[in-house]
Amino acid sequence: MASQGTKRSYEQMETDGERQNATEIRASVGKMIDGIGRFYIQMCTELKLSDYEGRLIQNSLTIERMVLSAFDERRNKYLEEHPSAGKDPKKTGGPIYKRVDRKWMRELVLYDKEEIRRIWRQANNGDDATAGLTHMMIWHSNLNDTTYQRTRALVRTGMDPRMCSLMQGSTLPRRSGAAGAAVKGVGTMVMELIRMIKRGINDRNFWRGENGRKTRSAYERMCNILKGKFQTAAQRAMMDQVRESRNPGNAEIEDLIFLARSALILRGSVAHKSCLPACVYGPAVASGYDFEKEGYSLVGIDPFKLLQNSQVYSLIRPNENPAHKSQLVWMACNSAAFEDLRVLSFIRGTKVSPRGKLSTRGVQIASNENMDAMESSTLELRSRYWAIRTRSGGNTNQQRASAGQISVQPAFSVQRNLPFDKPTIMAAFTGNTEGRTSDMRAEIIRMMEGAKPEEMSFQGRGVFELSDERAANPIVPSFDMSNEGSYFFGDNAEEYDN
């Protein structure tokens, strides 16, 4: 993207840094990872977990959730003011799984939030270390993106479920800051804005008074975040219109849905970061690795190297396929839920299948599930090659597409044709070009129609051997075009429920 120079890199967003050079960025990201790792080690000690239990991804998720809940100030305040039966607002906890007599047992633990905050700050040299908290939120978000298709949420806001490739980060909490905003897809931002506008339509006082002023500035800020994701002048001009509207209503909703559809071809720039579970960072720190000293990046080879040398386990339900569970977590670790499966298959070195073909449910185990038949197995999170994460949407291309997802959002900077089903997408653009945004709409449609099938995206960008740390010898991959490109292809993934 041309304006790259004016933006802070995501590592800076990730670490609240002012302008830093590459070495400083690597050190501050490393410091953040160190903090998460030290916190995780301490929690495993508190909970008396064995090494194996500490490497269980379900335990990692519970521990991450506990610290996120302990620092969720708004919710904590709300819980104190609106006490609900049987919930102690000062405590947080969740299921911890232990191996007892050759069987997995679930144990519900409860801790004072104050105590968890103390352990977290102690692991982070006394700081609140917001960057580390956001990092864990993005890992949870990436896992949700890989596990669930947001059909219901899309339909509720009037969008087409086939636009799911635009929904990265749709389950990120509001408090995820600049680093969170960077990884949100165009569809996620559109959905947040539509929800806001709908509230304004239904509630006369939404934009009024002292609160209304705050609401208005939040609305304009979200519009600017979305505008910054678009790469064409016409899309940005249309966002200006939406932002400046005196009284946002149905016309703005129409414009936003139009823009979301246009992003299936004229893709937005959305950041991709490899955020790993805390149970990967903990053992690495415990083994003596100093992330701050060595430096770390979320968008280069580092996460690949770390996963190459990590042992992570997962509980497996009786009829689940461990290899499929591994694929789910591998995609989440690489922030690749909406990437082209052919690119992923090449990088991973084994075939990556669409969601609907995987015999696996989510990673988390519900409290009512029976533990008797639970097994555990090693997650295979290694890769054959590594590639640089991208934040450009890439230019655009036609490809055989599917009944489910009709476009992709690249996660890796790797040369390819970008699949999208042009006739299906263009069919949504018939007729409606009147109104105050008509010239911009016409211009956007013209650009979409001009998108050429034979153009290559990320020209000359390749993948790298894991021994090639400096990215000196790019390998331009070859793809098996007979395979499906979309992950949520004609899909039956479970729906995400809060």
Rank of each mutant, 00 (worst) to 15 (best):
M1N: 10
A2T: 00
M13H: 03
D16G: 15
T23I: 04
K31A: 05
K31T: 05
D34A: 14
G35C: 11
G37W: 12
R38F: 09
C44K: 13
K48D: 09
E53W: 13
Q58T: 05
S60M: 11
I63E: 01
I63H: 05
M66D: 11
A70I: 08
F71S: 10
E73T: 15
A85K: 06
T92L: 10
P95K: 11
L108S: 11
V109P: 04
L110D: 10
I116G: 07
Q122V: 15
T130H: 14
T146M: 03
Y148K: 03
A153E: 06
V155P: 02
G169E: 14
A181L: 12
A181M: 15
V186H: 15
E192K: 10
L193I: 06
M196P: 04
R199Q: 07
W207G: 06
G212K: 13
T215C: 05
R216C: 03
Y219R: 04
Y219H: 14
K229N: 14
F230L: 15
T232V: 12
T232M: 11
T232H: 14
A233W: 03
A233L: 02
Q235K: 13
A237K: 03
M238F: 04
D240Q: 07
S262E: 09
R267I: 01
V270Q: 15
S287N: 15
G288A: 13
F291K: 13
G300Y: 06
D302C: 12
V312G: 03
P318G: 13
K325A: 04
Q327C: 06
N334V: 08
D340N: 14
S345Q: 10
T350N: 02
P354I: 09
P354R: 13
R355G: 01
K357T: 06
A366W: 06
S367E: 02
A373F: 14
S376H: 08
R384V: 08
S392L: 05
G393R: 08
Q398R: 15
S402V: 12
I406C: 11
V408C: 15
L418H: 02
D421G: 00
T424E: 12
T424I: 07
I425S: 02
E434G: 03
G435N: 08
E443C: 01
I445Q: 10
R446S: 13
E449C: 06
Q459E: 14
D468K: 01
E469V: 10
V476C: 13
D480H: 11
S486E: 01
F488Q: 04
F488N: 03
F489H: 14
E495I: 05
E495M: 12
